[in-house]
Amino acid sequence: MTSVTGVSAPDPSPTSSVASRSTGRLGDRVFSGLSIGAGTLVVVLVLLIGLFLVTQAVPALQRNEVNFLTSSEWTVSGEHPRFGVAGLLWVTVVSSIIAMLLAVPVGVAVALFLTQYAPTWLARPAAGTIDLLAAVPSIVYGLWGLRQFGPVLVPVQQFFAQYFGWIPIFAPNNGLSGNVSTIFVVGVVLAIMILPIVTALSREVFAQTPRAHIEGAMALGATKWETIRTAVLPFGKPGVISAAMLGLGRALGETLAVTIILATLAPGTPWVASLFNGGETFASKIANNAGEFDTPQKTGAFLAAGLVLFLLTFVVNAIARIVIERRKAFSE
C-alpha cells in the first residue's frame, strides 16, 4: 500500500500510554484469517456438494445398462440396473414451467400493486402478508394442496380436458383429469409457493425506479399505467427476469409439496404429454425412496438424479445472478 523513501526511521516507540499498547496486528491477522476461512468454507462446501454427488454417482452410472439421460426406466437394484431421468426431467420441468407461467405475471402485478398502487397505509402490511406465504412450510402446502385446494382445481382440469382436450397437454388421459394428484395441480401449488419470491424481488427493483424517470413520464402527460410501462417496467425488467429464475430454481427443487400431491405411476406406464397425469420429479423420486438407500449402487442412482437436479438449479440460479449483476453494472 505504501511506498517508502524515507531512511530516517528511528525507533517508532510511541510516547503516550495508549499508544504503547498492542496495536492488534496479531488480532487483525487472526480475525481476518477467520473471516477469510469462513468465506472459503462456503466456496468449498458448494464444490464438495458437486464432488460428492459426482464421485458416488459415477460407479452406479457405469453399471447402468440404459442411457441415463434418455431412458425413463428405473430399476436400480439387482445385477442389471437400468435407470434414466427422462421421465423425471419431463415432470420436473413441466410442473415448474406451469408454476412460472402463473406466478410471474401475478407476482409482477402484485409487486406493481405494492410499489405503485397500494395506498401508503396498506403497502407495508400488504407486503408483510405476501411475505407470510413464504413462511408456510412446503409440507403444509402439500397437505393443503392435496386435501383442500386440489379438489377445487379438478373442475378446471375437466373443463380444459373437455374443451381443449385436442391439445395434447390437455388430453383427458383416461379420466385422470378428474384426479387431484396431477402435474397440473402440482404446478398451480408450486406457483403459489414461488409467488412470494417473485413478488419480493420484483418489488425491490420496482421500488428503485429513479424518481426522475417516473416524473419524466408523468410530465409528458402519461397515465399511471403508461408511466409504469415506460419507466417502471423497463427499469425493473432484469430484476423481474432474475426473480423468475430464482422462482424457477425453487420450483425445480421443491420436494414435499410435490411428493404429497403427485401420484406415482406404475413402472412401464407409457409417456403421455397430458398435464393431467401422475409421475415423479427428481426431488419427489428421491424423497419417495429415501428409506431404501441401502446398497451403494442403489444410492448412487439416486445421487445421480440428485446431481442432475443440482446442476439444473445451479444453471438457473447462475443465470438469475448474472442478469442481476449486469443490471447493477448498469445502474452504478
Binding site: 468465506g39 458448494v46 420436494t255 426431488a283 445421487l303 440428485g306 438449479t313 445451479f314
Partner: peptide, 26 residues
C-alpha cells in the same frame, strides 16, 4: 464467495440432504 453464497441459496433442500447422506453415511 459471493457467487457461491448465491448458489448455496438455490440448492434444493433435498440435494443438501443427499449431500450430507453421501458425506456422513456412505
Amino acid at each position: 464467495v459471493s457467487f457461491m453464497v448465491d448458489i448455496l441459496t438455490g440448492v434444493p433442500s433435498i440435494v443438501a440432504g443427499l449431500f450430507i447422506y453421501a458425506f456422513w453415511v456412505t
